[in-house]
C-alpha cells in the first residue's frame, strides 16, 4: 500500500463528502413545508412581519442556489450553521450528542462481531448439529425482525414486566451527583437494552457469514495439512481456519457501519437515547434544515472514514492485495 494509493482514496473520500453535502441540501428542500411556519407555529402563531423576519434571518428568502453556495462554502470553512429550531450552533448540538451515539454504535458493533463470530465458528464445527441449526434460525429471525420491534419487545419484557433495566435515557437523573464509578455502571445499565437491540440484527449476519466462511476454510487443504501435523482441534479451528475466515467479516463490518448508524436512529428514538439519531428524527419533522444536514454530514463522514479504514486494514490483512493499485 503506497502513499499514492492512500492519497487517491482520501481524495475520493473528500469528493464523496462534497457530493453528499450537495445532495442532502437539494433533497431536503424537496420536502413540503416551510421552516418559518414551523418556527411561527412553535412560537404560538405569528404575524406576516414575523414570518418575513424569520425567513430573512435564516436566509430562506434567497434563491436556492445562492443558499446552496452559502452553505457549501461555510461547511468548507468548518461552520455547519445555526439550528432554525434551537437557534444554537449545529456543531454544539451535534457535539452534545455524538458521544452517546458513538458509544451506542461501537458497543453494538463490538458486541455483534464478537458474539456473531463466536457463534458462527462454533456452528461451523458441526454444520449439521443442533447448535448450527439454532444459529441458522436465530440468524434468519434476527435479520428479518425490524429493530424498533425488537426494542419495544425488550422494553416490555425487561423494563416493564421484569423491571431489570431502565426503559429510557442514558443516565438516571437521581445519580447525577454520584461518584464516577457509580455513574459508569449507571450508563452501562442503560446501555444494555439499546446496544443489544442494535447488535441483534448484525450479530445474526456475522454468525451466518462466519459459519459459511469457516465451512469453506475448514475444507481447504491447509487445514487438512494442519490436522495431519497432529495439531489439536481447537488450534486448527480458531488459529488456522478462523483467522482466514475473518477476512470477509472485516469487509462486511466496514460496510455495515453505515447500516448501524441508520439503525441507531431508530434505537435512539425507541429508547430515548440522547444521540444524533434522535436529533435527526426530530429535526426532519421540524424542517430544521441546518441540523438535518449537519447530522447527515457527520453520519456520512463516519461511514466514509469507516470504509477507508476497512479498505486499508483489508489490504494490510491480506498480503495478496498489498501491492495492488
Amino acid at each position: 500500500m503506497n502513499a499514492a494509493y492512500i492519497l487517491r482514496r482520501l481524495f475520493y473520500g473528500v469528493l464523496m463528502m462534497l457530493g453528499v453535502v450537495i445532495l442532502n441540501f437539494l433533497l431536503i428542500r424537496l420536502a413540503p413545508g416551510d421552516p418559518a411556519v414551523v418556527i411561527a407555529g412553535e412560537m404560538g402563531g405569528a404575524t406576516e412581519e414575523m414570518l418575513a423576519s424569520i425567513r430573512a434571518e435564516y436566509g430562506l428568502d434567497k434563491p436556492v442556489l445562492t443558499q446552496l453556495w452559502i452553505y457549501v462554502s461555510s461547511v468548507a470553512q468548518g461552520d455547519l450553521g445555526q439550528s432554525f429550531f434551537f437557534n444554537q450552533p449545529v456543531s454544539s448540538l451535534i457535539g452534545q450528542r455524538i458521544g452517546p451515539t458513538i458509544l451506542l454504535v461501537l458497543t453494538a458493533q463490538v458486541l455483534s462481531i464478537l458474539l456473531g463470530v463466536f457463534l458462527g465458528a462454533v456452528a461451523a464445527r458441526k454444520p449439521h448439529g443442533v447448535l448450527s441449526a439454532f444459529v441458522g434460525v436465530f440468524a434468519t429471525i434476527g435479520y428479518a425482525v425490524p429493530v424498533f420491534w425488537t426494542g419495544i419487545m425488550f422494553i416490555i419484557l425487561f423494563a416493564s414486566v421484569l423491571p431489570w433495566f431502565p426503559v429510557e435515557g442514558m443516565q438516571s437523573v437521581r445519580l447525577r451527583d454520584a461518584d464516577l464509578w457509580t455513574r459508569m455502571l449507571d450508563v452501562t445499565h442503560h446501555l444494555v437494552l439499546p446496544a443489544l437491540t442494535l447488535a441483534i440484527i448484525y450479530l445474526a449476519q456475522y454468525a451466518r457469514l462466519t459459519r459459511a466462511s469457516m465451512l469453506d476454510a475448514l475444507s481447504s487443504e491447509y487445514i487438512r495439512t494442519a490436522r495431519a501435523k497432529g495439531l489439536n482441534e481447537r488450534s486448527v479451528v480458531f488459529s488456522h481456519a478462523l483467522r482466514n475466515a475473518l477476512l470477509p467479516i472485516l469487509t462486511v463490518a466496514g460496510l455495515q457501519f453505515g447500516n448501524l448508524i441508520s439503525g441507531a436512529l431508530l434505537v435512539e428514538t425507541v429508547f430515548n437515547w440522547p444521540g444524533m439519531g434522535r436529533l435527526a428524527f426530530d429535526s426532519i419533522l421540524r424542517r430544521d434544515y441546518p441540523t438535518i444536514m449537519g447530522v447527515l454530514f457527520f453520519a456520512s463522514l463516519m461511514v466514509v472514514i469507516a470504509n477507508l479504514i476497512t479498505d486499508f486494514s483489508y489490504r494490510l490483512a491480506d498480503p495478496r492485495l498489498k501491492d495492488e493499485q
Partner: peptide, 14 residues
C-alpha cells in the same frame, strides 16, 4: 468535543 464527551459522557455535573 468528541474526545471530551467520550470522557465526560459519564462525568455529568455534581
Amino acid at each position: 468535543i468528541t474526545a471530551l464527551l467520550a470522557s465526560t459522557t459519564l462525568a455529568a455535573p455534581v
